[in-house]
Design a binder for these strands. Structure first.
Lengths: 229, 229
DNA sequence: TTGCGCTAGTGTGAAAATCACACTAAAGAG
DNA sequence: CTCTTTAGTGTGATTTTCACACTAGCGCAA
Protein backbone atom coordinates (compact mmCIF):
# COMPACT_ATOMS: atom_id res chain seq x y z
CA UNK A 1 0.00 0.00 0.00
CA UNK A 2 1.24 3.45 -0.79
CA UNK A 3 1.24 6.06 1.94
CA UNK A 4 0.10 9.63 2.30
CA UNK A 5 3.29 10.76 3.99
CA UNK A 6 4.88 12.12 0.87
CA UNK A 7 2.11 14.63 0.27
CA UNK A 8 1.70 18.14 1.55
CA UNK A 9 -0.79 18.56 4.37
CA UNK A 10 -2.73 21.66 5.29
CA UNK A 11 -4.64 22.82 8.33
CA UNK A 12 -8.40 22.65 7.84
CA UNK A 13 -10.96 24.95 9.35
CA UNK A 14 -14.67 25.38 9.04
CA UNK A 15 -16.20 28.86 9.01
CA UNK A 16 -19.85 29.26 9.74
CA UNK A 17 -22.02 32.09 8.53
CA UNK A 18 -24.78 32.05 11.12
CA UNK A 19 -27.87 33.84 9.90
CA UNK A 20 -30.61 35.14 12.13
CA UNK A 21 -33.64 37.32 11.49
CA UNK A 22 -34.99 39.80 13.99
CA UNK A 23 -38.15 41.03 12.29
CA UNK A 24 -36.38 43.97 10.79
CA UNK A 25 -33.43 42.58 8.98
CA UNK A 26 -31.15 39.70 8.30
CA UNK A 27 -28.15 39.41 10.59
CA UNK A 28 -25.07 37.31 11.01
CA UNK A 29 -23.16 36.44 14.11
CA UNK A 30 -19.56 37.67 14.16
CA UNK A 31 -16.72 37.40 16.63
CA UNK A 32 -14.22 40.13 17.30
CA UNK A 33 -10.82 38.50 17.15
CA UNK A 34 -8.74 38.60 20.32
CA UNK A 35 -5.44 37.65 18.75
CA UNK A 36 -3.23 38.11 15.77
CA UNK A 37 -3.60 37.96 12.88
CA UNK A 38 -6.40 40.45 12.28
CA UNK A 39 -6.64 41.26 15.99
CA UNK A 40 -9.78 43.27 16.82
CA UNK A 41 -11.28 42.65 13.40
CA UNK A 42 -14.65 40.99 13.11
CA UNK A 43 -14.55 37.46 11.79
CA UNK A 44 -16.83 34.54 11.06
CA UNK A 45 -17.03 31.98 13.82
CA UNK A 46 -14.85 29.08 12.82
CA UNK A 47 -12.33 26.65 14.12
CA UNK A 48 -9.90 23.94 13.20
CA UNK A 49 -11.17 20.54 12.20
CA UNK A 50 -9.84 17.79 14.40
CA UNK A 51 -8.42 14.50 13.28
CA UNK A 52 -11.52 12.33 13.51
CA UNK A 53 -14.17 14.89 12.89
CA UNK A 54 -16.36 15.11 9.82
CA UNK A 55 -16.52 18.55 8.27
CA UNK A 56 -20.17 18.91 9.04
CA UNK A 57 -19.66 17.84 12.65
CA UNK A 58 -17.02 20.51 12.97
CA UNK A 59 -19.43 23.13 11.67
CA UNK A 60 -22.06 21.91 14.12
CA UNK A 61 -19.55 22.08 16.93
CA UNK A 62 -18.62 25.68 16.10
CA UNK A 63 -22.27 26.61 16.21
CA UNK A 64 -22.98 24.70 19.41
CA UNK A 65 -20.02 26.18 21.26
CA UNK A 66 -21.22 29.65 20.43
CA UNK A 67 -24.94 29.32 20.84
CA UNK A 68 -25.66 25.99 22.47
CA UNK A 69 -27.94 25.17 19.56
CA UNK A 70 -28.01 21.77 17.89
CA UNK A 71 -30.20 20.39 15.13
CA UNK A 72 -30.17 23.51 13.08
CA UNK A 73 -30.24 23.95 9.33
CA UNK A 74 -26.67 23.76 8.08
CA UNK A 75 -25.40 23.69 4.52
CA UNK A 76 -21.93 23.59 3.08
CA UNK A 77 -21.23 26.22 0.46
CA UNK A 78 -17.70 25.54 -0.69
CA UNK A 79 -14.04 25.45 0.21
CA UNK A 80 -11.84 28.52 0.22
CA UNK A 81 -8.21 27.67 -0.17
CA UNK A 82 -6.17 30.40 -1.81
CA UNK A 83 -2.55 29.68 -1.00
CA UNK A 84 -2.14 33.10 0.65
CA UNK A 85 -5.46 33.39 2.44
CA UNK A 86 -3.98 32.92 5.91
CA UNK A 87 -0.94 34.86 7.08
CA UNK A 88 0.36 32.07 9.29
CA UNK A 89 0.42 29.30 6.72
CA UNK A 90 -1.69 27.18 4.51
CA UNK A 91 -5.22 26.87 5.86
CA UNK A 92 -8.07 25.51 3.80
CA UNK A 93 -11.45 26.50 5.10
CA UNK A 94 -14.80 24.93 4.37
CA UNK A 95 -17.64 27.43 4.50
CA UNK A 96 -21.01 26.56 5.96
CA UNK A 97 -24.00 28.68 6.67
CA UNK A 98 -26.66 27.97 9.24
CA UNK A 99 -30.10 29.35 9.89
CA UNK A 100 -31.22 29.86 13.45
CA UNK A 101 -34.11 31.35 15.34
CA UNK A 102 -32.47 34.42 16.73
CA UNK A 103 -34.60 34.63 19.86
CA UNK A 104 -34.47 30.96 20.71
CA UNK A 105 -31.12 31.03 22.47
CA UNK A 106 -28.78 32.89 24.77
CA UNK A 107 -25.17 33.34 23.85
CA UNK A 108 -23.09 31.02 26.00
CA UNK A 109 -21.31 32.86 28.80
CA UNK A 110 -17.93 31.80 27.49
CA UNK A 111 -18.86 33.46 24.23
CA UNK A 112 -20.00 36.66 25.80
CA UNK A 113 -16.59 37.06 27.37
CA UNK A 114 -15.29 37.35 23.87
CA UNK A 115 -17.02 39.88 21.76
CA UNK A 116 -19.77 38.21 19.87
CA UNK A 117 -22.36 40.34 18.13
CA UNK A 118 -25.10 40.26 15.55
CA UNK A 119 -24.39 42.42 12.52
CA UNK A 120 -26.76 43.45 9.78
CA UNK A 121 -25.76 41.72 6.59
CA UNK A 122 -26.48 44.87 4.62
CA UNK A 123 -24.06 47.16 6.45
CA UNK A 124 -20.82 45.36 6.97
CA UNK A 125 -17.39 46.80 6.60
CA UNK A 126 -14.32 44.68 6.17
CA UNK A 127 -13.88 41.37 7.92
CA UNK A 128 -10.81 39.38 8.85
CA UNK A 129 -9.11 37.07 6.33
CA UNK A 130 -11.23 36.44 3.24
CA UNK A 131 -14.35 36.30 5.37
CA UNK A 132 -16.17 38.96 3.40
CA UNK A 133 -15.82 36.81 0.31
CA UNK A 134 -17.05 33.79 2.25
CA UNK A 135 -20.01 35.71 3.57
CA UNK A 136 -20.91 36.88 0.08
CA UNK A 137 -20.80 33.33 -1.25
CA UNK A 138 -22.98 32.09 1.61
CA UNK A 139 -25.46 34.92 1.25
CA UNK A 140 -25.78 34.27 -2.49
CA UNK A 141 -26.36 30.63 -1.79
CA UNK A 142 -29.04 31.45 0.75
CA UNK A 143 -30.72 33.77 -1.74
CA UNK A 144 -30.98 31.00 -4.27
CA UNK A 145 -31.89 28.34 -1.75
CA UNK A 146 -34.71 30.27 -0.22
CA UNK A 147 -36.51 30.47 -3.55
CA UNK A 148 -36.70 26.74 -4.05
CA UNK A 149 -36.68 25.26 -0.56
CA UNK A 150 -38.72 26.23 2.45
CA UNK A 151 -35.64 27.01 4.53
CA UNK A 152 -36.83 30.49 5.45
CA UNK A 153 -38.95 29.03 8.23
CA UNK A 154 -35.76 28.02 10.04
CA UNK A 155 -35.21 31.70 10.73
CA UNK A 156 -38.67 32.40 12.13
CA UNK A 157 -40.19 31.52 15.49
CA UNK A 158 -42.50 28.49 15.39
CA UNK A 159 -45.53 30.77 15.17
CA UNK A 160 -45.33 33.65 12.76
CA UNK A 161 -47.50 36.02 10.78
CA UNK A 162 -47.58 36.28 7.01
CA UNK A 163 -46.14 39.77 7.23
CA UNK A 164 -43.16 38.46 9.17
CA UNK A 165 -42.66 35.81 6.55
CA UNK A 166 -42.84 38.39 3.80
CA UNK A 167 -40.34 40.65 5.54
CA UNK A 168 -38.01 37.71 5.89
CA UNK A 169 -38.13 37.01 2.16
CA UNK A 170 -37.66 40.68 1.43
CA UNK A 171 -34.56 40.82 3.61
CA UNK A 172 -33.01 37.77 2.06
CA UNK A 173 -33.87 38.60 -1.51
CA UNK A 174 -33.12 42.30 -1.00
CA UNK A 175 -36.22 43.29 -2.87
CA UNK A 176 -39.78 44.37 -2.15
CA UNK A 177 -42.65 41.99 -2.67
CA UNK A 178 -46.27 42.73 -3.31
CA UNK A 179 -48.34 41.87 -0.26
CA UNK A 180 -51.32 40.39 -2.07
CA UNK A 181 -49.31 38.39 -4.56
CA UNK A 182 -47.01 37.08 -1.86
CA UNK A 183 -49.86 35.92 0.35
CA UNK A 184 -51.67 34.36 -2.57
CA UNK A 185 -48.61 32.36 -3.53
CA UNK A 186 -47.77 31.21 -0.03
CA UNK A 187 -51.32 30.24 0.80
CA UNK A 188 -51.77 28.38 -2.47
CA UNK A 189 -48.84 26.13 -1.60
CA UNK A 190 -50.83 24.77 1.27
CA UNK A 191 -47.77 24.41 3.46
CA UNK A 192 -48.91 26.58 6.34
CA UNK A 193 -51.16 25.61 9.19
CA UNK A 194 -53.51 28.32 10.34
CA UNK A 195 -53.23 28.14 14.13
CA UNK A 196 -56.46 30.06 14.73
CA UNK A 197 -54.51 32.28 17.05
CA UNK A 198 -53.87 35.98 16.88
CA UNK A 199 -50.99 38.23 17.69
CA UNK A 200 -51.52 39.83 21.08
CA UNK A 201 -50.68 43.21 22.50
CA UNK A 202 -50.02 44.98 19.23
CA UNK A 203 -51.38 48.46 18.71
CA UNK A 204 -53.10 47.62 15.47
CA UNK A 205 -55.26 44.94 13.97
CA UNK A 206 -53.69 41.68 15.14
CA UNK A 207 -52.47 39.23 12.53
CA UNK A 208 -53.23 35.54 12.34
CA UNK A 209 -50.49 33.16 13.39
CA UNK A 210 -49.32 30.29 11.24
CA UNK A 211 -46.86 27.48 11.51
CA UNK A 212 -45.02 25.57 8.82
CA UNK A 213 -46.47 22.16 8.00
CA UNK A 214 -43.53 19.73 7.98
CA UNK A 215 -45.75 16.76 7.16
CA UNK A 216 -47.38 18.37 4.15
CA UNK A 217 -43.97 19.41 2.90
CA UNK A 218 -42.73 15.84 3.07
CA UNK A 219 -45.70 14.57 1.03
CA UNK A 220 -45.15 17.50 -1.29
CA UNK A 221 -41.53 16.52 -1.89
CA UNK A 222 -42.34 12.82 -2.17
CA UNK A 223 -44.90 13.54 -4.86
CA UNK A 224 -42.33 15.44 -6.87
CA UNK A 225 -43.76 18.90 -6.55
CA UNK A 226 -41.35 21.70 -6.02
CA UNK A 227 -41.41 24.72 -3.79
CA UNK A 228 -40.97 27.93 -5.71
CA UNK A 229 -41.14 31.57 -4.64
CA UNK B 1 1.91 35.48 16.84
CA UNK B 2 0.31 32.13 17.45
CA UNK B 3 1.26 29.23 15.24
CA UNK B 4 -0.57 26.59 13.27
CA UNK B 5 1.66 23.78 14.48
CA UNK B 6 -0.66 22.64 17.21
CA UNK B 7 -3.49 21.86 14.81
CA UNK B 8 -4.25 18.71 12.90
CA UNK B 9 -3.34 18.80 9.23
CA UNK B 10 -4.86 16.77 6.44
CA UNK B 11 -3.87 15.89 2.91
CA UNK B 12 -5.85 17.84 0.33
CA UNK B 13 -6.83 16.63 -3.10
CA UNK B 14 -8.92 18.00 -5.92
CA UNK B 15 -11.16 15.70 -7.92
CA UNK B 16 -12.39 16.80 -11.27
CA UNK B 17 -15.57 15.63 -12.94
CA UNK B 18 -14.76 16.28 -16.59
CA UNK B 19 -17.88 16.42 -18.69
CA UNK B 20 -17.95 15.98 -22.45
CA UNK B 21 -20.77 15.62 -24.94
CA UNK B 22 -20.53 13.47 -28.03
CA UNK B 23 -23.79 14.25 -29.80
CA UNK B 24 -25.49 11.27 -28.29
CA UNK B 25 -24.98 11.61 -24.60
CA UNK B 26 -23.21 13.22 -21.73
CA UNK B 27 -19.96 11.57 -20.67
CA UNK B 28 -17.34 11.92 -18.00
CA UNK B 29 -13.68 11.05 -18.13
CA UNK B 30 -12.61 8.37 -15.65
CA UNK B 31 -9.31 6.73 -14.82
CA UNK B 32 -8.90 3.10 -13.92
CA UNK B 33 -6.78 3.02 -10.81
CA UNK B 34 -3.43 1.24 -11.04
CA UNK B 35 -2.76 0.96 -7.34
CA UNK B 36 -4.32 0.30 -3.99
CA UNK B 37 -6.66 1.28 -2.58
CA UNK B 38 -9.49 0.52 -5.00
CA UNK B 39 -7.07 -0.95 -7.54
CA UNK B 40 -8.73 -1.49 -10.94
CA UNK B 41 -11.76 0.56 -9.97
CA UNK B 42 -12.73 3.56 -12.03
CA UNK B 43 -12.12 6.89 -10.33
CA UNK B 44 -12.40 10.59 -10.97
CA UNK B 45 -9.19 12.20 -12.12
CA UNK B 46 -7.70 13.96 -9.14
CA UNK B 47 -4.49 14.62 -7.36
CA UNK B 48 -2.92 16.09 -4.28
CA UNK B 49 -2.75 19.83 -3.86
CA UNK B 50 0.78 21.08 -3.44
CA UNK B 51 2.02 23.54 -0.89
CA UNK B 52 1.79 26.76 -2.92
CA UNK B 53 -1.01 25.87 -5.22
CA UNK B 54 -4.45 27.41 -5.20
CA UNK B 55 -7.28 24.90 -5.26
CA UNK B 56 -8.46 26.04 -8.64
CA UNK B 57 -4.95 25.86 -10.07
CA UNK B 58 -4.72 22.30 -8.86
CA UNK B 59 -7.97 21.43 -10.61
CA UNK B 60 -6.68 23.07 -13.78
CA UNK B 61 -3.47 21.11 -13.50
CA UNK B 62 -5.31 17.81 -13.15
CA UNK B 63 -7.25 18.61 -16.29
CA UNK B 64 -4.24 19.80 -18.24
CA UNK B 65 -2.15 16.75 -17.36
CA UNK B 66 -4.87 14.50 -18.64
CA UNK B 67 -6.05 16.35 -21.71
CA UNK B 68 -3.60 19.15 -22.41
CA UNK B 69 -6.51 21.58 -22.29
CA UNK B 70 -6.33 24.94 -20.56
CA UNK B 71 -8.81 27.78 -20.31
CA UNK B 72 -11.79 25.57 -19.85
CA UNK B 73 -14.92 26.12 -17.84
CA UNK B 74 -14.25 24.98 -14.28
CA UNK B 75 -16.41 25.34 -11.22
CA UNK B 76 -15.97 24.23 -7.65
CA UNK B 77 -18.86 22.27 -6.24
CA UNK B 78 -17.90 21.56 -2.66
CA UNK B 79 -15.54 19.78 -0.31
CA UNK B 80 -15.92 16.14 0.67
CA UNK B 81 -14.23 15.36 3.91
CA UNK B 82 -15.83 12.49 5.79
CA UNK B 83 -13.27 11.29 8.30
CA UNK B 84 -13.34 7.79 6.83
CA UNK B 85 -13.54 8.58 3.15
CA UNK B 86 -9.98 7.49 2.39
CA UNK B 87 -8.59 4.17 3.62
CA UNK B 88 -5.05 5.46 4.02
CA UNK B 89 -5.78 8.42 6.22
CA UNK B 90 -7.49 11.73 6.37
CA UNK B 91 -7.86 13.25 2.93
CA UNK B 92 -10.12 16.19 2.24
CA UNK B 93 -11.04 16.54 -1.39
CA UNK B 94 -12.39 19.57 -3.19
CA UNK B 95 -14.67 18.65 -6.08
CA UNK B 96 -14.64 20.56 -9.33
CA UNK B 97 -16.36 19.91 -12.58
CA UNK B 98 -15.23 21.08 -15.97
CA UNK B 99 -16.86 21.28 -19.36
CA UNK B 100 -14.82 20.49 -22.42
CA UNK B 101 -15.32 20.04 -26.12
CA UNK B 102 -14.89 16.32 -26.40
CA UNK B 103 -13.47 16.33 -29.92
CA UNK B 104 -11.10 19.22 -29.44
CA UNK B 105 -8.28 17.24 -27.88
CA UNK B 106 -6.29 14.03 -27.85
CA UNK B 107 -5.61 12.25 -24.59
CA UNK B 108 -1.99 12.81 -23.68
CA UNK B 109 0.18 9.75 -24.35
CA UNK B 110 1.07 9.50 -20.68
CA UNK B 111 -2.61 9.23 -19.93
CA UNK B 112 -3.31 6.60 -22.51
CA UNK B 113 -0.74 4.40 -20.85
CA UNK B 114 -3.03 4.39 -17.87
CA UNK B 115 -6.58 3.48 -18.64
CA UNK B 116 -8.51 6.62 -19.28
CA UNK B 117 -11.97 6.37 -20.78
CA UNK B 118 -15.14 8.28 -21.40
CA UNK B 119 -18.15 6.85 -19.60
CA UNK B 120 -21.80 7.67 -20.09
CA UNK B 121 -23.06 9.48 -17.05
CA UNK B 122 -26.31 7.58 -17.21
CA UNK B 123 -24.86 4.09 -16.94
CA UNK B 124 -22.19 4.06 -14.29
CA UNK B 125 -21.58 1.36 -11.77
CA UNK B 126 -19.63 1.93 -8.62
CA UNK B 127 -16.59 4.15 -8.50
CA UNK B 128 -13.59 4.26 -6.17
CA UNK B 129 -13.79 6.09 -2.83
CA UNK B 130 -16.85 8.34 -2.53
CA UNK B 131 -16.51 9.34 -6.15
CA UNK B 132 -20.04 8.35 -7.06
CA UNK B 133 -21.32 10.79 -4.48
CA UNK B 134 -19.00 13.45 -5.83
CA UNK B 135 -20.16 12.81 -9.37
CA UNK B 136 -23.79 13.06 -8.33
CA UNK B 137 -23.18 16.38 -6.62
CA UNK B 138 -21.37 17.73 -9.68
CA UNK B 139 -24.01 16.50 -12.06
CA UNK B 140 -26.77 18.11 -9.99
CA UNK B 141 -24.85 21.32 -9.96
CA UNK B 142 -24.43 21.21 -13.72
CA UNK B 143 -28.14 20.59 -14.14
CA UNK B 144 -28.98 23.69 -12.21
CA UNK B 145 -26.22 25.78 -13.74
CA UNK B 146 -27.17 25.00 -17.31
CA UNK B 147 -30.62 26.46 -16.80
CA UNK B 148 -29.44 29.87 -15.76
CA UNK B 149 -26.04 30.28 -17.41
CA UNK B 150 -25.04 29.63 -20.99
CA UNK B 151 -22.43 27.08 -19.98
CA UNK B 152 -23.78 24.39 -22.27
CA UNK B 153 -21.92 25.92 -25.18
CA UNK B 154 -18.66 24.92 -23.52
CA UNK B 155 -19.55 21.34 -24.38
CA UNK B 156 -20.29 21.93 -28.04
CA UNK B 157 -17.96 22.55 -30.96
CA UNK B 158 -17.69 26.22 -31.98
CA UNK B 159 -20.22 25.66 -34.76
CA UNK B 160 -23.31 23.68 -33.91
CA UNK B 161 -26.88 23.10 -34.98
CA UNK B 162 -29.96 23.85 -32.94
CA UNK B 163 -30.72 20.16 -32.78
CA UNK B 164 -27.31 19.46 -31.29
CA UNK B 165 -27.93 22.18 -28.73
CA UNK B 166 -31.31 20.71 -27.89
CA UNK B 167 -29.87 17.21 -27.48
CA UNK B 168 -27.24 18.61 -25.17
CA UNK B 169 -29.86 20.18 -22.95
CA UNK B 170 -31.89 17.00 -23.03
CA UNK B 171 -28.89 14.94 -21.92
CA UNK B 172 -28.02 17.25 -19.10
CA UNK B 173 -31.55 17.79 -17.88
CA UNK B 174 -32.49 14.14 -18.46
CA UNK B 175 -35.76 15.14 -20.03
CA UNK B 176 -37.27 15.63 -23.47
CA UNK B 177 -37.87 19.09 -24.83
CA UNK B 178 -40.32 20.24 -27.48
CA UNK B 179 -38.47 21.16 -30.65
CA UNK B 180 -40.50 24.21 -31.57
CA UNK B 181 -40.65 25.64 -28.08
CA UNK B 182 -36.96 25.07 -27.52
CA UNK B 183 -35.96 26.81 -30.76
CA UNK B 184 -38.32 29.70 -30.10
CA UNK B 185 -36.82 30.27 -26.68
CA UNK B 186 -33.22 30.00 -27.77
CA UNK B 187 -33.69 32.22 -30.80
CA UNK B 188 -35.58 34.84 -28.80
CA UNK B 189 -32.60 35.24 -26.48
CA UNK B 190 -30.64 36.59 -29.36
CA UNK B 191 -27.43 34.99 -28.17
CA UNK B 192 -26.68 32.93 -31.24
CA UNK B 193 -25.00 34.08 -34.43
CA UNK B 194 -26.36 32.51 -37.57
CA UNK B 195 -23.22 31.61 -39.50
CA UNK B 196 -25.04 31.24 -42.83
CA UNK B 197 -23.39 27.89 -43.19
CA UNK B 198 -24.92 24.47 -43.48
CA UNK B 199 -24.06 21.04 -42.24
CA UNK B 200 -22.35 19.07 -45.00
CA UNK B 201 -22.41 15.42 -45.98
CA UNK B 202 -25.48 14.44 -44.00
CA UNK B 203 -28.07 12.19 -45.60
CA UNK B 204 -30.97 14.50 -44.85
CA UNK B 205 -31.84 18.15 -45.02
CA UNK B 206 -28.76 19.93 -43.69
CA UNK B 207 -29.14 22.14 -40.64
CA UNK B 208 -27.94 25.69 -40.25
CA UNK B 209 -24.85 26.24 -38.15
CA UNK B 210 -24.71 28.72 -35.32
CA UNK B 211 -22.15 29.96 -32.87
CA UNK B 212 -22.58 31.44 -29.41
CA UNK B 213 -22.29 35.23 -29.26
CA UNK B 214 -19.92 36.00 -26.36
CA UNK B 215 -20.19 39.75 -26.90
CA UNK B 216 -23.96 39.82 -26.81
CA UNK B 217 -23.91 37.72 -23.69
CA UNK B 218 -21.62 40.19 -21.96
CA UNK B 219 -23.95 43.10 -22.77
CA UNK B 220 -26.81 40.91 -21.70
CA UNK B 221 -25.24 40.26 -18.30
CA UNK B 222 -24.14 43.87 -17.88
CA UNK B 223 -27.68 45.07 -18.48
CA UNK B 224 -28.95 42.77 -15.77
CA UNK B 225 -30.93 40.37 -17.88
CA UNK B 226 -30.74 36.75 -17.00
CA UNK B 227 -30.40 33.65 -19.08
CA UNK B 228 -33.15 31.16 -18.40
CA UNK B 229 -34.05 27.84 -20.02
C1' DT C 1 -65.99 57.20 24.06
C1' DT C 2 -64.35 58.63 20.15
C1' DG C 3 -61.25 59.20 16.71
C1' DC C 4 -56.46 58.49 15.19
C1' DG C 5 -52.57 55.72 13.85
C1' DC C 6 -51.24 51.61 12.44
C1' DT C 7 -50.97 47.10 10.28
C1' DA C 8 -54.05 42.99 8.56
C1' DG C 9 -56.42 41.24 5.07
C1' DT C 10 -58.68 40.75 0.54
C1' DG C 11 -59.85 40.29 -5.68
C1' DT C 12 -59.56 41.44 -10.45
C1' DG C 13 -57.97 42.12 -15.00
C1' DA C 14 -54.03 42.72 -18.24
C1' DA C 15 -49.81 40.86 -19.91
C1' DA C 16 -46.50 37.45 -20.38
C1' DA C 17 -44.89 32.86 -20.36
C1' DT C 18 -45.65 28.14 -21.05
C1' DC C 19 -47.32 24.28 -23.28
C1' DA C 20 -49.18 21.02 -26.70
C1' DC C 21 -49.28 19.93 -31.22
C1' DA C 22 -48.35 18.40 -37.18
C1' DC C 23 -46.96 19.41 -41.44
C1' DT C 24 -43.61 20.82 -45.42
C1' DA C 25 -38.51 21.19 -46.96
C1' DA C 26 -34.19 19.42 -48.46
C1' DA C 27 -30.43 16.47 -48.61
C1' DG C 28 -28.18 11.64 -49.69
C1' DA C 29 -28.85 6.69 -50.62
C1' DG C 30 -30.41 3.22 -53.38
C1' DC D 1 -37.09 9.25 -58.90
C1' DT D 2 -38.53 7.72 -54.71
C1' DC D 3 -37.51 6.69 -50.04
C1' DT D 4 -35.55 7.84 -45.62
C1' DT D 5 -34.19 11.04 -42.50
C1' DT D 6 -33.79 15.21 -40.09
C1' DA D 7 -34.66 20.58 -40.45
C1' DG D 8 -37.60 24.02 -39.88
C1' DT D 9 -41.85 26.55 -38.89
C1' DG D 10 -47.00 29.01 -36.15
C1' DT D 11 -51.10 29.05 -33.45
C1' DG D 12 -54.26 28.86 -29.75
C1' DA D 13 -55.29 27.33 -24.93
C1' DT D 14 -53.72 27.52 -20.34
C1' DT D 15 -51.17 29.10 -16.62
C1' DT D 16 -48.45 32.32 -14.29
C1' DT D 17 -47.12 36.80 -13.25
C1' DC D 18 -47.84 41.34 -12.20
C1' DA D 19 -49.89 45.80 -10.88
C1' DC D 20 -52.96 47.89 -8.06
C1' DA D 21 -56.55 50.26 -3.50
C1' DC D 22 -59.69 49.75 -0.20
C1' DT D 23 -61.96 48.01 4.35
C1' DA D 24 -61.11 45.70 9.12
C1' DG D 25 -59.75 45.77 13.81
C1' DC D 26 -56.63 46.70 17.54
C1' DG D 27 -54.38 50.07 21.22
C1' DC D 28 -53.76 54.53 22.53
C1' DA D 29 -54.52 59.26 23.73
C1' DA D 30 -57.35 63.18 23.92
Amino acid sequence: MPSLDQFFKAAITVDNVIFGFDDADLKILLIQRGEEPYINKWALPGYFVTEDENLESAAERVLAELTGLTNVYLEQVRAFGAADRHPLGRVITIAYYSLIKINAFQLKPASIAEKVKWHSVSKLDELAFDHKEILDACFSRLKRRVRTRPVGFELLPPKFTLTELQHLYESILETELDKRNFRKKIISMNLLIDLNEMQEGVAHRPAKLYKFDQEKYKEFVASGYSFEI
